[in-house]
Simulated assay, not measured.
Amino acid sequence: MPKRILTGTVVSDKTDKTVVVNVERKVKHPLYGKIIRRSKKYHAHDEENAYKPGEVVRIEETKPMSKLKTWRVIDRIVAGKGEAVEADLSENA
């Protein structure tokens, strides 16, 4: 059976070797026909703690690693916004 692969945004990396990925999908409302967004959060294994919040990643279904973790991160699609760095604007000319 093929493994499912989903694309989502990392929303948390606070736990060790785990990231929380928010996967959004669009579905049509059964009665009204309007397209609505549904989202779900998945806990995914990140061995090197390499992924940070804001990055878009692909996750793959795997055997259960813990109570909540049954996915692992395959790769990064879009890098997140970097941290803000203050410029040194002192005039020492």
Score class of each variant (00 low, 15 high):
residue 5 I to M: 08
residue 42 Y to N: 00
residue 74 I to W: 01
residue 75 D to S: 15
residue 89 L to N: 06
residue 38 R to L: 15
residue 25 R to T: 09
residue 52 K to N: 09
residue 83 E to L: 12
residue 47 E to P: 09
residue 6 L to K: 00
residue 43 H to L: 12
residue 64 P to N: 04
residue 84 A to K: 09
residue 13 D to C: 15
residue 51 Y to H: 03
residue 70 T to S: 15
residue 53 P to R: 01
residue 24 E to R: 13
residue 91 E to G: 06
residue 80 G to L: 05
residue 6 L to A: 03
residue 43 H to P: 04
residue 60 E to H: 07
residue 18 T to S: 08
residue 36 I to D: 09
residue 40 K to I: 07
residue 89 L to C: 05
residue 92 N to Y: 11
residue 35 I to Q: 02
residue 42 Y to D: 00
residue 75 D to V: 07
residue 77 I to R: 07
residue 55 E to Y: 02
residue 49 N to M: 06
residue 33 G to D: 02
residue 91 E to I: 10
residue 70 T to K: 13
residue 43 H to S: 15
residue 37 R to Q: 08
residue 84 A to H: 08
residue 38 R to W: 06
residue 55 E to R: 00
residue 18 T to N: 05
residue 19 V to M: 01
residue 32 Y to P: 02
residue 90 S to N: 13
residue 91 E to R: 04
residue 47 E to Q: 09
residue 35 I to L: 07
residue 83 E to H: 11
residue 32 Y to K: 11
residue 3 K to M: 13
residue 22 N to S: 15
residue 77 I to N: 06
residue 78 V to I: 13
residue 31 L to Q: 14
residue 33 G to C: 05
residue 29 H to L: 06
residue 83 E to W: 05
residue 35 I to P: 00
residue 34 K to W: 03
residue 17 K to Q: 08
residue 69 K to Y: 03
residue 31 L to W: 05
residue 83 E to S: 15
residue 84 A to N: 08
residue 58 R to S: 05
residue 64 P to A: 12
residue 68 L to G: 03
residue 69 K to E: 04
residue 90 S to L: 12
residue 92 N to Q: 09
residue 85 V to E: 13
residue 45 H to Q: 03
residue 44 A to V: 03
residue 42 Y to I: 01
residue 33 G to R: 02
residue 62 T to P: 01
residue 14 K to Y: 06
residue 84 A to V: 12
residue 61 E to Q: 12
residue 33 G to I: 04
residue 93 A to Q: 10
residue 82 G to L: 14
residue 48 E to Y: 10
residue 71 W to L: 05
residue 28 K to W: 01
residue 41 K to S: 11
residue 25 R to D: 07
residue 11 V to D: 03
residue 86 E to S: 14
residue 87 A to G: 15
residue 36 I to P: 10
residue 78 V to F: 09
residue 59 I to F: 01
residue 23 V to C: 12
residue 43 H to Q: 13
residue 53 P to C: 03
residue 6 L to T: 00
residue 58 R to T: 01
residue 80 G to P: 02
residue 77 I to K: 08
residue 75 D to K: 09
residue 52 K to F: 11
residue 11 V to C: 06
residue 32 Y to E: 04
residue 78 V to M: 12
residue 14 K to A: 13
residue 15 T to H: 14
residue 73 V to M: 08
residue 92 N to S: 14
residue 93 A to H: 04
residue 55 E to W: 01
